[in-house]
Amino acid sequence: MKPAALELISIQSSESLKLRSPMVDPATEVATRMLAQVMDYRRVPHAGDLCGNSECQTCASFHLPKIISAVRRNEPVTFVLPAFPGKSPNPEKVLGALPDYAEQLALQFLGNLGQQVRQYYSPGIKIILCSDGRVFSDLVGMKESNVTAYQSGLSGLIGELQLSDIETFNMDDFYGELSFNQMRDELMKRYGSSLDFLKHKVRNGMAELATAEEQGAHRMYCGITRFLFEDSLHAGQTKSRSAIQKESRLKAYEVIRRSNAWSELIAERFPDAVRLSIHPQTCGSAKLGIRLVGNESWMTPWHGVAVETAKGFVLLKKSEAETLGAELIYSSGGQPSRYKLRGEL
């Protein structure tokens, strides 16, 4: 297998967290422990971007005050995660349009995180999955009907697994009876930023003296371009690789613009929530990058399949799992669910 594109670092366990000052109030102590626990699963671009200390004041500055505030009110701490858009349209990467065992693994991880928090803070946490598939479905080749089915399937899976700490939120919830195109138009009218501004940030992100925000914009642009390119490479498509690459680069800017607009809407709708991201985030970012399944790098449940190995589950493209000779496993309802690898990965 190819080496991971990103280094995923697990910092010191929250179980070993020790507050140095005996004067710290109980709410701050609980909040610090909770933040450290989430940071155990941080997703960062490079090892050098990680402070290596769960008590880092730079990292805590954006997130700890919100957690402390909720704890002092004895309320669940809210986390928002823009993710779970819908399955990739590339049949060589996924098993189909509906959530499968890959999503189940990610949901169970988030649910387990909530259960761990309840062991020392009874109100627990609330994780709101802000499904963003409708935001850019027309750009990435996802059918609207598949987005609807995926959102419904995700909610059903959350209920089936009895994950009471997890909720969902999407554009359909916010914009109600508008058509899907009208939803996207309204989103960009109110929350969208200019294309020139984004291009400027992406270009600056390649410079030696680029800011962390500019570096993040460039990194995200490269990642989205790669996803769009890969999703378009499947049997039956007739465009050349160079044409697909050019198209992917152009579309990536609009995907990011809409994604940023969706983030602004979420921030306005949930102002007290701690913001999570599936994308790598550097030390001190306003969002915490989080990985959802094991030590996956850029792979997500909606861009791959779950493969059971002797060392646990990993996420791979469907074509990679089949090349390895993995056996397809079906759910109790007869739907393709995951793969099982008999030998070593």
Rank of each mutant, 00 (worst) to 15 (best):
V147P: 01
E214N: 13
S145R: 02
Q162H: 14
Y150T: 07
L178E: 15
S193E: 05
I224S: 02
K189P: 02
R226C: 01
N204H: 12
D138G: 05
S131P: 03
Y175V: 09
I125G: 03
Q151H: 15
G176R: 08
M142E: 12
G124L: 01
E144P: 00
D185G: 11
E213W: 00
V135K: 00
G156R: 05
K189I: 11
L129N: 02
D173L: 02
K189W: 07
G205Y: 06
I166T: 11
M171T: 13
D132S: 06
L195R: 13
L228Y: 01
C130Q: 03
V140A: 07
F227A: 10
Y221S: 05
N181T: 15
D172A: 12
L157N: 05
K143Q: 11
M183G: 06
N170A: 13
I158A: 06
D132F: 04
K201V: 07
V140E: 09
D165N: 14
L129P: 02
L198R: 08
M171E: 12
G159E: 10
L178Y: 14
I158H: 01
H200V: 12
V135N: 01
I125H: 02
E167Q: 13
Q215W: 06
R219K: 09
K189M: 13
K189D: 13
I224Q: 07
L198F: 08
E167H: 11
I125S: 02
Q182E: 15
S137D: 08
L163C: 10
T225G: 07
E177C: 03
H218C: 13
G223D: 08
T148H: 02
N146A: 09
G153L: 05
G159M: 01
I127M: 03
Y221E: 08
Y221F: 15
D185F: 14
E186R: 14
D185E: 15
Y221N: 12
E208S: 07
E167S: 14
D173E: 08
M171N: 11
L198E: 09
T168D: 09
A149C: 01
N146M: 03
Y191P: 07
